[in-house]
Design a protein around this nucleic acid. Structure first.
Length: 458
RNA sequence: GCGGUAUUGGUGAAGUGGUUAACACGCCGGAUUGUGGCUCCGGUAUGCGUGGGUUCGAUCCCCACAUUCCGCCCCA
């Protein structure tokens, strides 16, 4: 059997419906903030990522999908969204548009050559936003609040926002020096990974899981003490705007993003859920004022965040959130004889053209099997064709919840279904009552017999 | 890049170096003369991830590969 590539997934069925639902919700929220959707290529010249993401860590050297195309060009499957969006911003001269800042969002697949584990795949779907052309701290706060609002709207409750500031380049360089100076005498007491980090990326020592909580770590210099006045003031404004936007957050000095291009505000949104495994950060981002210039564009500030849709779906599942997915069809058309089948063919078509969600039988099941199939498909109404009835221009319509059945004139069918289905919307159990219960609005005269709570104790 | 884990029908799974690979669910059909979801009866695997090896013989032992899940590194 041919198997899927390592770290990839087939998403289908109810799972796919959930993904689409969340994607639509992202569209909705981004639209309210007036961010515009952008589609960029799934692969770019390798240069985009080498220069954008930086060559310091393992990222570019070991964890991208690189290939040489037939024209001998070095290409890379996009490992993240920001660099490609920035490339597009520059190439299309969006900085020339009158409507600055440019506010964009994306939602698509990314590729990383990693060893899969919980919450980490080789093909992943990320959505994210980028704001280019404004250095206003208000934007920093807006981007964070947009992220939080998406999570809240899907129903997540256990989320934590951690923010930090890396300051400008001057502040960051000073801090880096201070860290190296501080840790060097203690380095032999620290874990092997930290020994490597001291040279490669000293900021990341603060993220270490092994040495976390030790005295050495607790007494390490804090970035916030190394911010210059300007950076400090900027960070305070970000916090002020976050409060005005009613976003709960924690200042956490150990939040250090791994990439070179970040400066000033950085943040992570964590799903605070039990058993979520090692990858509990569902979204992260920050300000990158140097990136546009680094990719040969005009010196333009930027701010953004990205979030893995897969991890978000995982969080939704772990928190037990039920998304409002409509997994039903309006009607299922049943038949037995050939003439009935012929009529079914045109009837199904006619119903669909009139906006009904309709399915029918395609595998030769008997009537009993068709009833079962209709149940599996959560059909609200069963349309049962019968040669005798057809002669009289009649059709049997059965409400699959109340089990009530009546013969309806064919000319009247569309109108009848329309009317019945709009009643459906008023009452979940379809019994036509109004007890005020969330699941059933029955007044005690319920006859639906179908999962109805109207006779449960009060 | 490093380490651990698993892989048996549509699904959940038991199991053994040796003739016919449990059980349950599901599915299909019948009892029910065209109206089901209960009950009863019957049917339902190209045979145990792929390729090698050991063996008289392997689903079960060994090796490699693929994929799964989990942790480390890294984290965009």
């Amino acid at each position: 059997m041919i198997t899927k590539p390592k770290g990839c997934h087939d998403i289908y069925g109810i799972e796919a419906k959930k993904w689409n639902y969340v994607s639509r919700l992202i569209d909705e929220v981004c639209s309210r903030y007036n961010y515009n959707f952008i589609r960029t290529p799934i692969f770019e010249s390798s240069e985009v990522y080498h220069r954008g993401v930086g060559e310091t860590s393992d990222i570019v050297t070991k964890e991208t999908y690189d290939f040489v195309d037939r024209g001998d060009r070095n290409m890379t499957l996009r490992p993240e969204g920001t660099a490609g969006v920035v490339r597009s911003y520059i190439e299309n001269k969006m900085y020339g548009d009158a409507t600055q800042p440019t506010k964009l969002y994306y939602n698509g697949t990314m590729y990383r050559y990693e060893r899969p584990q919980s919450g980490r795949d080789r093909e992943l779907t990320q959505f994210g936003v980028e704001v280019l052309g404004s250095d206003d701290p208000m934007i920093d706060a807006e981007v964070i609040s947009l992220a939080v609002n998406i999570y809240k709207l899907v129903g997540l409750k256990q989320i934590k926002v951690n923010i930090n500031s890396l300051g400008d380049k001057e502040s960051r360089d000073n801090y880096r020096k201070a860290l190296v100076e501080y840790f060097t005498p203690y380095i032999n007491d620290m874990c092997d990974d930290c020994k490597n980090r001291l040279e490669k990326n000293p900021l990341r020592i603060l993220d270490c899981k092994v040495d976390a909580g030790t005295e050495i770590m607790n007494n390490a210099p804090k970035i916030l003490d190394y911010l210059n006045e300007e950076s400090k003031e900027r960070f305070e404004k970000v916090q002020k705007y976050l409060s005005l936007l009613d976003v709960d957050f924690c200042v956490n000095p150990s939040i250090v993003r791994g990439l070179d291009y970040y400066d000033h505000t950085v943040f992570e949104v964590e799903a605070d859920i039990k058993d979520f495994g090692a990858q509990n950060v569902i979204g992260a981002g920050g300000r990158y004022n140097g990136l546009v210039k680094q990719l040969d564009g005009p010196d333009t500030p930027g701010m953004g965040f990205a979030s893995g849709l897969g991890r978000l779906m995982l969080a939704i599942e772990k928190e037990g959130i039920e998304l409002p997915i409509d997994d039903s069809v309006d009607c299922f058309v049943m038949y037995v004889s050939e003439t009935e089948k012929d009529y079914a063919t045109t009837l199904v078509q006619e119903l669909r053209m009139n906006g009904f969600k309709v399915d029918t039988e395609y595998t030769g099941r008997g009537l009993k099997g068709q009833f079962k199939q209709a149940d599996r498909l959560n059909s609200k109404f069963l349309l049962i064709l019968n040669d005798e009835d057809l002669k009289d221009n009649l059709i049997q319509v059965k409400n699959n919840k109340t089990k009530q059945e009546e013969k309806v004139e064919l000319d009247y069918l569309m109108y009848y279904l329309d009317e019945q289905l709009s009643q459906e919307d008023e009452c979940d159990c379809g019994c036509g009552c109004d007890c005020g219960d969330d699941d059933c609005c029955c007044d005690g005269d319920c006859h639906c017999g179908d999962n109805c709570h109207c006779h449960d104790e009060d």
